[in-house]
Design a protein around this nucleic acid. Structure first.
Length: 409
RNA sequence: CGGGGCAUAGUGAAACGGCUAUCACGAGUCUUUUGGGAAGAUUUAUUCUGAGUUCGAAUCUCAGUGCCCCGACCA
């Protein structure tokens, strides 16, 4: 992608109407635009990040047998009446008050599955979608961390026995940790025991990533590392002979529940033996995860994307000094990298000074920067620098593809 | 939903109730520039909306709307 073709631009100043770091950086770097509170447009760079995260999530869900579907956002009132959730304040109601915008999808997926699961032999099954959710939040805040319209993966699983549900639940936990590992936040992400919420009597689990930008507080047992959220934390850790807790701010980046028969009963989802089917539900906010990654991976100059979710792998920056020969060479290197199928953003802008280009590059946070200038070309070289490294070094132009191949593994 | 704050050019800011609403950056045109946010010339506004007070309102008052923050809420 040639940067001169991008319709977005970076901003020099923080927007005055955003205090949250993830929103400031993402807006300044041209990844997102705010339409209204909690409602954002994903611009070309931001959408590439979203797609990267989606694909990681998709692969991990597919790996544990999830089948991807896409359910509607327009959902009829009657389904919500059955579950008793029509009058929750999160729901946006539209079209003469007989339709709601889906803020979760048990009310759609349960009757859907009922049409196809006719016998215990059809179990277990697991379906998921990646879809825009609408929640009328009383207070949207913190940029992408709490929106009114946001992108979420929600998976639902269906089981004949509790043992089978429990077994799948453990697979889900592992798949979630794989996702956080691949997004490079696993080292600061904890599995916290939480309450079951309004509609589930049992415990649930939240995946909590440590960051001061988060709105949750988790308690990590100093003895056994068990983690609780504040709803169910006791004075002393019950698992561990009463060790103390360490308090941390965090953002919930995933939440998994055993719904058991909470929805299968009202919707009549049962086996041929008249036994209600056991359900689990597993949410993960894609756009929130993007915001969380920015919150925990940045420096004074801008974003530092993990390779796995970066919009491009390489930021090729030419500093021509108005010399056409430098531009021609940079163009050539761009073509070489493109032909090797590397993802390259090529800053070919003529009207920008070196300082502006380098600052923009730091702000955007692409993992590997390759600079081509008169200086580097005098040694038949380019300068390479990782976004998270302090120092740059020169490598020969003939070694570029080898170097890049190694560095983006 | 309670509390607080803010709203001026594309962006960020300034302006005591009083002169043509100022500055920087961006963007457009022209010339010169290019390794860490260049220089000159020139162009760039319905001061959020509505009402009110006043000889006179960006500035004061009231109402509305939007945004941010704290809290409540949060599958």
């Amino acid at each position: 992608m040639k940067q001169s073709d991008l319709f977005t631009k970076t901003l020099r100043e923080n927007p005055s109407d955003e205090k949250s770091l993830n929103a400031q950086l993402l807006i300044r770097a041209g990844f997102v635009d705010k339409l209204s509170s909690g409602v954002y447009t994903y611009l070309p760079l931001g959408l590439r990040v979203i797609k990267k995260i989606q694909n990681i999530v998709r692969e991990e869900m597919d790996n544990i047998g999830g089948q991807e579907i896409l359910m509607p956002s327009l959902t009829p009132k009657e389904n919500w009446v059955i579950s008793g959730r029509w009058n929750v304040e999160e729901m946006y109601k539209i079209i003469g008050e007989d339709t709601g915008l889906g803020w979760t999808h048990e009310e759609v997926v349960t009757p859907l599955i009922k049409k196809y699961i006719l016998s215990h032999k059809d179990l277990p099954k697991s379906v998921y979608q990646i879809q825009t959710k609408f929640r009328n939040e009383p207070r949207a805040k913190s940029g992408l961390l709490r929106g009114r319209e946001f992108i979420m993966k929600d998976m639902y699983s269906f089981h004949e026995t509790e043992e089978d549900l429990n077994e799948y639940y453990e697979k889900i936990k592992q798949a979630y940790f794989n996702i956080y590992e691949r997004c490079d936040i696993k080292r600061i992400t904890y599995l916290a025991v939480a309450s079951g919420g309004k509609f589930s009597e049992k415990y649930s689990h939240e995946f909590q990533t440590l960051t001061d930008a988060g709105e949750d507080i988790i308690y990590i047992c100093s003895g056994c590392n068990t983690v609780f959220n504040k709803e169910i934390k006791t004075e002393k850790c019950p698992n561990c002979g009463g060790a103390d807790f360490i308090e941390n701010k965090s953002i919930e980046v995933g939440n998994i529940f055993k719904l058991n028969t909470t929805y299968s009963e009202p919707f009549g989802l049962k086996t041929e033996k008249n036994q209600p089917i056991l359900m689990g539900c597993y949410g993960l906010g894609i756009s929130r995860l993007m915001g969380a990654i920015v919150e925990v991976s940045n420096d004074a100059k801008g974003i530092i994307w993990p390779r796995s979710v970066a919009p491009y792998q390489i930021h090729l920056v030419e500093i021509t000094g108005d010399e056409n020969s430098v531009k021609q060479k940079a163009q050539k290197i761009y073509e070489i990298l493109q032909n090797k199928n590397f993802e390259v953003l090529y800053d070919n802008r003529d009207e920008k000074t070196a300082g502006e280009k380098l600052n923009d590059s730091d702000l955007m946070g692409i993992p590997l920067r390759v600079v081509v200038s008169k200086k580097t070309l005098s040694e038949d070289s380019v300068e390479v620098k990782s976004r998270n490294a302090d120092d740059a070094c020169l490598i020969k132009i003939t070694d570029i593809t080898n170097y890049v191949e190694k560095s983006i593994q």
